[in-house]
Amino acid sequence: MADTMNIEPVKLTREDFNSPIEARWCPGCGDYSILAQMKKVLPELGVKKENIVFIAGIGCSSRFPYYVDTYGYHTIHGRAPAVASGVKIANPDLKVFVMTGDGDALSIGGNHFIHLCRRNIDITVVLFNNEIYGLTKGQYSPTSVQGQITKSSPYGSIERPFNPVEMALAAGATFVARTIDREPKHLEHILKRAAMHKGLSFVEVYQNCVIFNDGAYAPLTDKKVKKDNLIYMENDKPFIFGQDDEKALNWNGSGFEIVNLADHPEETLIKHAEDGGNPAAEFALSNLTMETHMPTPIGVFRNAHIPTYENMLVKQIKDVTAQKGEGTLETLLNSGNTFEIK
């Protein structure tokens, strides 16, 4: 088998990741932006190209593996987290990405998604959230807003949507972030941090579907209004936003409220802490969305560090081996209640 250890420094450029296969998303699709930023990030990870694996399920997002020149596996609907778990456990030296969508990860694959988060396997999940089923041509998804008119909800969807960041936090993901396709710098920065995180990292990308749900995130991307609606979270910094950075979020004891900087000097404001030490704040932040008529935070919600699944498994194998001795075929066959017939 090839040497999969990453010993020498890796010198790669984004061109090294250009796939001979031309991307076939619709013109103007937000997925192109995610692909472009990912190709910038990959050479910076210090991982050899042959050790990078993209796993996907089904949907527009899930064509992603074909468009990067690494190992790639386009699997079946919803199951990419499970396939990726097997890949990472089989070879912990690999850098494994799961590229998924709102239908793939939260509907048909919802079970696998929460369990992947819970186990803290060192995998980076990028969820392209366009709040619609694109590849099947426009049905409402588990993140579609209530009332949304789609082909399968001609009178408006009556379902309540999932909040992907809140789900990932609740399921125990150790790195949880949100970004937007139209914010390329932010997207690049978040993808890189997620990819460098040791443990399960989850990135929700608000992604515009130009065909079936165009403008779903307009309040967050339209230059005229976005400063009033978007908060760029940074660790250890207050949550300042507004056309002239004149507003901020502050903690009122039970939740976040909007305050004017004029009345609340910066040093008195609550600061963002990513370290996972304050679940109440994490969940409160995740619930600030257009749905709740609050400014929407993007950035890192949680960045905590606990042992990964695969490291604990490797350690268990080592510990048991140290205790019982390395098992050979000879000892295997001759174990149990044996007896001799002469």
Partner: peptide
């Protein structure tokens, strides 16, 4: 699915 991933890897 995880076994398929492990086999692939």
């Amino acid at each position: 699915a995880s076994a398929i991933g492990a086999s692939y890897a």
